[in-house]
């Protein structure tokens, strides 16, 4: 995740920005409505954003123009849902670019699509599907799926920008190669992050249920 500044060609930067902007506008609108409904939600939103920032700043380098790290979006998507998480993630990504030189401005659209939109969306679907049966499994899948899907999307983004040969075959070949490189660090990270997310969400639910209900 976190494709670095300048790594993607102009047309792909524009494409990912065009995809991210409508979702971010909707996420911002929902966040504003949430704050208007309950002004105290502002603090929870700010801390969750900070949490995404801190977790996703723990990076391990990967050799594909990107790096591996926990995403922190699994916890946020359980607390706020996918659209607000997308909005929060985009700000966390902007902060990481400006405070840690991690990611970039031209690649912010692409990074938002993978870490803020698609990953949490699939995490949310997994959470909703398992919530009725087993809450622990639902928390685990939300974090693991959000994390793992982020890397699948990043691999696809890199493969689309740098296909081995013209056409879909070249894109698939590159995607498999990038996924293979990421998998070494990312699968263990996704599992560890999911365990941490389960323990975190369970302890929040046990000791501070008002945070979840807020």
């Amino acid at each position: 995740m976190h494709i670095m500044e300048g790594f993607l060609p102009a047309e792909w930067c524009a494409f990912w920005y065009a995809l991210a902007i409508p979702v971010l506008i909707y996420g911002a609108w929902k966040t504003k409505k949430e704050i208007e409904r309950d002004p105290k939600a502002k603090s929870l939103l700010a801390v969750s954003l900070g949490f995404i920032f801190v977790l996703s700043a723990l990076k391990l380098p990967s050799v594909t123009g990107s790096c591996s790290h926990p995403t922190g979006t699994g916890v946020a998507v359980v607390l706020f849902g996918p659209s607000v998480t997308a909005f929060l993630s985009s700000i966390a990504l902007l902060y990481q670019a400006l405070l840690l030189a991690h990611g970039g401005l031209t690649t912010l659209g692409a990074n938002t699509v993978s870490m803020g939109i698609v990953g949490p969306f699939f995490g949310f679907i997994a959470y909703k599907a398992l919530k009725k049966f087993n809450l622990t499994a639902a928390f685990f899948s939300a974090a693991a799926v959000a994390d793992f899907m982020t890397y699948v999307v990043t691999s696809l983004q890199l493969a689309l920008a740098f296909p081995a040969s013209p056409g879909m075959e070249g894109v698939m070949f590159s995607a498999i190669r990038f996924l293979g490189i990421f998998a070494v660090t990312q699968i263990p990270l996704a599992i560890i992050e999911a365990f941490i997310a389960v323990l975190l969400l369970r302890s929040i639910r046990t000791y501070s249920p008002e945070v979840i209900s807020a």
Binding site: K40, S43, L44, A46, V47, G50, F51, V54, I192, F195, I196, V198, L199, L200, S203, I204, Y207, S208, V211
Partner: peptide
């Protein structure tokens, strides 16, 4: 390590929430 990290995460979350509030 996993358990401690989760507990730290929880405490971090709550303390920061309190301070931001």
């Amino acid at each position: 390590w996993v358990k401690t990290t989760a507990l730290i995460g929880h405490m971090m979350f709550l303390r920061s929430f309190e301070r931001v509030e």
